[in-house]
């Protein structure tokens, strides 16, 4: 328990550091967002409006950096991430709120499916090494080394086009309004199939390979021989002795992968113009939309930290050796 509290304290500190960095970095970048907004509206903004924009974005020149920093924290704690320029005057939290579910559902589901599928196949390939499952390896090595956006481009090239079942871009048919009804949901699922498949194919291989290699390593441990000698069933030895121990490194990898779900697989979202967080981030970058970028980075940071915490907890549960006292 003490260990656990230590970890939480560590993560809180990391979050604090990340948020502080998040505050300073845009202020170190040359140019400022108000200037770019003025450029965007091409002189249609009055001087007073410009002054109030500075205040709005927390860039009030009359304020010291310190009080800006304090204000920044106040805003964050209220869940206020400022206003987006790209989607002006929509608040950043609203923009993120709209993009997040797309990414979380698409990448989240594929990550989970990929982990379970890949780990399962890896257990099989590791346990039955020398059989037909070894034929899987060159294929998985190939797919794990292929960049997934390239796979996405190939998929679009080969599988989409006029009259195809698979749409080439977007998250749903353009005529529809997002709602949980019988028109929207099938459309959303249809649009997500290709990106999901692309991510799945390229990420499942990594899980297969790492699990298989761990299985092979663990299979030569003494306790596996003992388990055989005890006359336990092949299944019990494979799952409860070999796979159970081989799983440990994969589990922490999985928890970390969960953290990167929110970041989305940026390139896949770009390739498929998928309305997720990664795609939004690219838009924000293109428009020098600092508040939106800051907001997205904040969400990313927090999700990666939460995932790390999850990895720690999972390890505590799965590996008794990491527990300090028992």
């Amino acid at each position: 328990m003490r260990y656990f509290l230590q970890r939480i304290a560590f993560y809180l500190f990391t979050a604090f550091a990340a948020i502080t960095l998040n505050f300073f970095i845009p202020r170190l970048v040359p140019g400022d967002p108000v200037q770019s907004l003025i450029a965007k509206y091409q002189g249609q903004i009055s001087t007073q409006a410009i002054q109030s924009l500075y205040v709005l974005f927390g860039l009030d020149k009359k304020q010291s950096l310190w009080s800006q920093y304090i204000d920044y924290w106040k805003q964050i704690l209220h869940g206020d991430l400022g206003l987006s320029f790209t989607f002006f005057p929509a608040p950043v939290s609203q923009v993120i709120g709209q993009a997040l579910p797309w990414t979380v559902l698409l990448v989240g589901i594929t990550t989970i499916v990929s982990f379970f599928l890949g780990t399962g196949l890896g257990v099989l390939a590791g346990w039955r090494r020398g059989s037909w499952t070894d034929g899987l390896l060159p294929v998985t090595t190939f797919f794990s080394s292929v960049p997934y956006f390239w796979l996405g481009i190939i998929a679009i090239y080969l599988l989409t086009g006029p009259g195809s079942f698979f749409p080439s871009s977007g998250g749903f048919d353009s005529g529809l309004v997002p709602a949980f009804d019988q028109y929207f949901i099938p459309s959303a699922i249809r649009h997500s199939l290709l990106p999901a498949l692309t991510i799945l194919i390229s990420s499942v291989s990594g899980w297969i390979l790492s699990m298989r290699n761990m299985m092979v390593t663990v299979a030569s441990e003494d306790y596996i021989t003992v388990a055989h000698a005890k006359g336990l069933s092949e299944r019990r030895v494979a799952l409860s002795y070999a796979a159970r121990n081989a799983l440990l490194p994969s589990v922490s990898g999985f928890a970390l992968a969960l953290g990167f779900i929110v970041g989305g697989t940026l390139l896949v979202e770009i390739v498929f113009s998928y309305p997720g967080l990664g795609f939004t981030l690219v838009q924000a970058l293109g428009a020098k939309d600092y508040p939106l970028m800051q907001g997205i980075f904040l969400v990313l940071t927090i999700s990666v930290l939460v995932a790390n915490l999850l990895a720690d907890v999972a390890y505590l549960l799965l590996d008794p050796r990491t527990r300090k006292e028992g």
Binding site: Y223, V226, R244, P320
Partner: peptide, 9 residues
């Protein structure tokens, strides 16, 4: 040392 599985009681 290694005859017992480290993750099971």
């Amino acid at each position: 040392m290694n005859s017992l599985n480290p993750v099971h009681k």
